[in-house]
Write a protein that binds this DNA or RNA. Sequence first.
RNA 1: GGACUCAUAGCUCAGUUGGUUAGAGCGUCGCCCUCACAUGGCGAAGGUCGUAGGUUCAAGUCCUACUGAGUCCACCA
Length: 890
Amino acid sequence: MTELSARFNFNEVDEKWSKYWVDQNLFHAHVNPQKKPYTIVIPPPNVTGILHMGHAFNNTLQDIMMRYQRMRGFEALWMPGTDHAGIATQNVIERQIAKEGKTRYDIGREEMLSRLWDWKKIYGDTIINQLKKLGASCDWGRTRFTMDEGYCRAVSGAFISLYKKGLIYQGEYIINWCPRCQTALSDEEAEHRELQGNLYYLRYPFQDDPNGFIVVATTRPETMLGDSAVAVNPKDKRYQKYIGKILVVPLVNRAIRIIADEFVDSQFGTGAVKVTPAHDPNDFAMAKRHQLEFVNIMNPNAILNGHAGPFEGMDRFEAREAIVEELRQLKLLEKIEPHAHAVGHCYRCHTVVEPYLSKQWFVKMKPLAKPAIEAVRKGRIKFHPSRWTKVYFHWMENINDWCISRQIWWGHRIPVWYCGGDDHCTLACKEPIVSETTPTRCPHCGSANLRQDEDVLDTWFSSWLWPFATLGWPLSTHPTEDRSDSGKQDLDYFYPTSSLFTAPEIIFFWVARMMMAGFEFMGDIPFTDVYIHGTVRDMKGRKMSKSLGNVIDPLEIIREYGADALRFSLILNSGQDLFVSKEKFEVGRNFANKIWNASRLILMHVDRSEVDLTTIDLKKLDLPTRWIISRLHTTLNRVDRALGRCRFSEAENLIYEFFWGDFCDWYLELIKDRWSEKAIEDIVLGILKDTLKMIHPFMPFVTEELWATLHQGKNPLCREAWPVFSRKMINRSAEKDMEILKGVVTCIRNIRVQWNVNQNERVACCLITSFEKEAALLSANLTLLMNMARLANVTISKKSTHLKDAATALAGDIQCLIPLGGVIDVGKERERMVNQLGDQQKTFQGLAQRLRNKAFLQKAPKEIVSKEKERMAVLKAKIKELKSVISGLG
RNA sequence: GGACUCAUAGCUCAGUUGGUUAGAGCGUCGCCCUCACAUGGCGAAGGUCGUAGGUUCAAGUCCUACUGAGUCCACCA
């Protein structure tokens, strides 16, 4: 006998096991030639991160997969770690020093970096500890950080390798510039949002005719200060005569030419466009074509500079209003139209980004994309759901070069030095010096006056190496906890990894780039399956965000409902995007409690833990027992299939229905007073054990606790073997028969409600059916049925079970008939039967008609045809019987 | 401007490669504190599967158009 409380005490249990698993190092994976590896690398959360619902969901999915594969006998490695998250983390510290009234420039690079590292040391493990609370079965001893010493070597190694191949170059181009973070961003880091802005129509006077003018339309009038030309389409008849003429940019009085360029859309605005080469990517391209002047009117903080004339010192938006007002005064503002357009925002601080001309480092992406596109096309890497391949292809086939330099301090310093120059400098000294280690002298002139590039690399330039850099690439620089494992062996054994779990918005940032890096640096795919999951939203469908105040804190849910409840409920709702409210976590809590109590019941009566169901003689078992065994294996089979297809919610549903609906509601109720039977004890114990295993990946805590109670000190459940599906255990006819009996019982239970029977009052009834087979089934299980019926205080007093006997039964002291499908009131029976007869005759006619249809007979599968024929024969007999019963009742 | 997703019970969603009577949870309404569990048990009500066509012996499922909701991509100033 085991004493367990009637409530599942999740707080205590969660804490106990998350600590135990980690302390015992139960999730450590090592090179093991006896087993096949199964590897997942965690999408490294930012060091700034605290666990939110998105993390909870993403990591629960991974953990289910990891625990499942581990139990199935794979050497399962879940590689954990965190990302330094350059801009995001730097912003956190910047906010901190802002409270001291300072900026990062005030305290300087050294001080800033030291504060960043301090912060990382103190808070960097926060999210790792929160993941442990969730139950994540990572190999924690391997935890990596993207700025670990070895990882840094991987990053600079990757840079140098690409540079040597000519795939990294430096150049002056228009990039997305965040004036708040004061750094360049990649195209992906500029989030485009539709904003309601204005289209301003400005008049540019001719130089030789100040009364004449050309009207240009722009959404950013302040950029006019940097205009170098006005462009029109060469085919545009309206403007052909003006091409080559000179205009004067108002306010700054710069003379600019009217040029012709195919790019200009005559349909848009006035068909004449102002060209601002330093502040617009298209204008930049146009300027290259026409050798125009580049006029940069802004400082890096988006304050206008000396080129802005009277507007110098103004913020860009301030200047916009001032300029519009000024032009209005000068009668050079034709009109303002409302105009919705997509404006880029910094993905970290949400400031409007500025297309800005600056010197940056880029990676040539087209050559890298090629093998990665092929891999998906050939099916070596699969997306789940597959529709994401289309999104992937579209991006990869239209890929642009990647701006990888950032003007921030937190990150991997670009491994490039410049010769500071002295008298001995040669032309070659202008070439950047790219080196793994800090060079002491310029290789060309020998000068020691060297200066490292100030910039750091894009965070994603380090995370795209994650699947192999965490395993020791480029060298065996990462000895693992096991001294015997060299990094190289790890890499050989665990790479390529198996699957990757992430959200759709990460496909471009990370997934696609990992594929490219995988081919470039490892010569192989980084993973075989990419599982793209939904976004966690509130009940109104909005993303959860602090500013909206609609966040549900997963840690709060863990406290109030338990980690199992959090995990189970999230997955259950995860068909696509998840819509979450606090109440939705009750399902998980209730289920955990149900598992707890059902197990408690069993543990009260069963005093051992070992059982071997494979040797049990199935034929000797009664129907409900054959049924529950069959149901277990049917469920097991379906769960395996569902997990194989990444249908996690489906798997949970199956388990939920089996455990609660079949095992608890029916089987345990049925065998409640039969604990003394050895076979029953065996079966119940066996089913409990297999079920705990099956539930474990989804709800590791409650199952582990119960397993421990059952086994007292043996193997922990997380290292047990997954139950083996056996087709022999499936018994279709038992499942079918049991459905019928359950239907009968449901009918019997109805009686109490429908006839309003008091507790002590008995109802005498008679089961009827028009099917011989069912009649036999009912007869054979009459004792069982009477047992079940007694639960509802209904007595079955006549064992007559065939419809043809119903008339006799009704003539006796029977109060009601219970046909399969409903309860019959004797008085209303005749009328009902007449109606039923009509319905069945109709169905019969329909079937007959269909069976006479040649097309149906030719094209329909034979099974269907024979089934229909069988059904017709049955109907025919039933109609005949009904007729005789009706006449009997008359 | 392209691409994608969704629309099934009051709510949130399942529904396999088309195939007997479309399911679950929550909510609602009855009845039960029965010796594992009231975070429980039993029962009931509730659906013209977004609209209109088409393919098929057979459509919630496949095709087309439309309507509505959402997401992503794109250099229309």
